[in-house]
């Protein structure tokens, strides 16, 4: 692992205006290439943490560095995937994927090459001319991921991207996401409510407690990549899922 962390939180706190503390003295450091999941009860500030990294809102105190720079300076290196696909309904799949590149003034030939590449990655090359409303929920989400990947991000922020999908689709997309990551070196921050998903995807899982949001515990997930559907059948995987569930439950009972 490299010596300089890609993302570094030092004693970061966050509150909105004079409201209650949302994040309380968060310190964590993530190296390039890691896949980190944040899991915890509602209101534990895990989505806020992503928004801090994205520079959508500033930290209240402490320091947050991305590649040694402020979130605003690092904005170009980020990709963001929301819980909803957030596609522009009036643009085709192809144009949706190119939209952020267009905003950055990237030339058309480069854009279309990128677009073809990422559409291949998410296996939707045949739907390039479709409009979002013609796609299923899972397909929309894949387009949303492709759009983020087309910006060649160093850091991908995913805020419960598969939360609204059914279990089968979710598992497929989990596998697909890891398969894509085999080909592209990005670091991921993944917010989820699903323990199984967190364990399957991550190299590390942070369990958060709520009110205020704190890191309760972190767990290393020692399962070798590449992980596939078979990984879910392994003993180690099941033990890890049980262990994370246990820790999450203890956090939730404390909060309740």
């Amino acid at each position: 692992m490299s010596a300089t962390p890609l993302v570094e939180f030092q004693e970061v706190t966050k509150r909105f205006g004079h409201g209650p503390l949302v994040l309380d003295h968060i310190s964590l450091s993530v190296d390039p290439g890691e896949f980190v999941s944040l899991i915890g009860p509602s209101g534990c500030g895990k989505s806020t943490l992503l928004r801090l990294i994205a520079g959508l809102t500033p930290v209240s105190s402490g320091s947050l560095r991305i590649n040694g720079r402020t979130p605003n300076q690092a904005a170009a290196e980020l990709g963001f995937v929301f819980q909803e696909a957030t596609l522009l309904p009036w643009l085709t799949v192809a144009k949706n994927i190119e939209a952020p590149q267009k905003l950055r003034g990237i030339a058309a030939p480069v854009r279309s090459a990128k677009r073809q590449h990422v559409l291949d990655l998410v296996r939707l090359s045949d739907r390039a001319d479709a409009y979002p409303r013609q796609l299923s929920g899972g397909q929309k989400m894949r387009v949303s991921i492709a759009r983020a990947l087309a910006l060649s991000p160093k850091l991908l922020l995913l805020d419960e991207p598969f939360g609204a999908l059914d279990e089968m689709t979710r598992e497929h997309l989990n596998e697909e996401l890891l398969a894509i990551r085999e080909q592209q070196a990005w670091t991921a921050f993944f917010v989820t409510h699903s323990v199984a998903e967190a364990v399957f995807l991550s190299s590390r899982v942070f369990v958060f407690s709520a009110n205020p949001g704190r890191i309760s515990t972190e767990m290393k997930i020692d399962l070798p990549y590449p992980r596939t559907a078979d990984t879910r059948l392994s003993r180690v995987y099941h033990d890890l899922v049980s262990e994370v569930s246990r820790r999450l439950r203890s956090v939730e009972t404390h909060t309740a």
């Binding site: 994205a54 963001f80 929301f82 522009l88 905003l103």
Partner: peptide
């Protein structure tokens, strides 16, 4: 306009005119 889309444009650092 959908709040999420507005945030997305902010993430992309789109100008006000864009």
């Amino acid at each position: 306009t959908d709040r999420n889309l507005v945030e997305l444009f902010q993430m992309w650092r789109a100008s006000r005119l864009q």
